[in-house]
């Protein structure tokens, strides 16, 4: 193990680290929005849309991100749809994550007590008002643990971006290994890089879960 090798590689890893963070953030944000829309369309049984969402969720959940990325990056140009690797990575992460987030939200919405919804109806609330004041705040609080697990999962999945040559953390490490053969050093930095993102984040998310749960339900 050579410390000078590690120190010299840090500037490159820093770039990869920032790219991993950026793409994760964008992809996760997109996945949450897509997931929420999908989940609501199923919760309110929107005709047609509900069907399409059902098919999308099954396709997305039952195929690997790697093949999704290959299809988007190498396959879609055959239909005239050509995107940069960066854009493909984000599309892939949103496509994959959207279904996981949708299932997370759905779990939360389904967890709301039926009597809560009835007592909202009994006050004469409209569907929109019921969603705004009862279903959304409670369903969101119930889905936070699943959403948090998905966030961690999606960040780890960005490591697969390396297959379409996006220079994120994993790609940086593999590139350096290919050039200088210092496997131990670069793999160590790679693992520490993910640990720096994921350990504090999972502690933060656990704390957030408790706060949100307490805010909504008091226990």
């Amino acid at each position: 193990m050579s410390w000078s090798v590690i120190v010299q590689s840090l500037p490159m890893f820093q770039k990869g680290f920032i790219l991993t963070l950026q793409m994760s953030a964008l992809g996760i944000l997109g996945a949450i929005i897509l997931g929420l829309v999908c989940s609501l369309s199923q919760y309110f049984k929107v005709p047609v849309l509900k069907r399409i969402v059902g098919i999308y969720i099954e396709l997305s959940r039952n195929t690997p991100l790697l093949i999704q990325l290959f299809f988007i990056y190498y396959g879609l140009p055959g239909l005239g749809l050509k995107f940069s690797a960066y854009v493909c990575g984000i599309i892939g992460l949103v496509f994959l994550g959207g279904s996981y987030m949708a299932e997370g939200f759905t779990g939360g919405f389904d967890g709301i007590a039926k009597s809560q919804i009835e007592s909202g109806l009994a006050l004469g609330l409209s569907t929109a008002q019921l969603t705004r004041y009862v279903i959304f705040p409670q369903g969101f609080a119930l889905s936070v643990p699943a959403l948090a697990a998905n966030i961690i999962f999606l960040i780890k999945e960005t490591s697969i971006f390396t297959v379409i040559a996006i220079p994120e953390l994993t790609n940086t490490a593999l590139d350096l290994i290919g050039m200088y053969y210092k496997t131990n050093e670069y793999l160590l930095v790679l693992i520490i890089g993910y640990a720096i993102i994921l350990i504090p984040l999972s502690i933060l998310l656990t704390w957030l879960e408790r706060r949100i749960r307490y805010g909504a339900f008091g226990h």
Binding site: N62, Y74, G75
Partner: peptide, 23 residues
């Protein structure tokens, strides 16, 4: 020239066919 579309598409569905029954 558009082989990637069909081959990766086919593999996409192969994975789907294997995983879907488990889901």
């Amino acid at each position: 020239p558009q082989g990637a579309f069909w081959i990766y598409g086919a593999i996409f569905f192969l994975y789907f066919i294997i995983c879907y029954p488990f889901s």
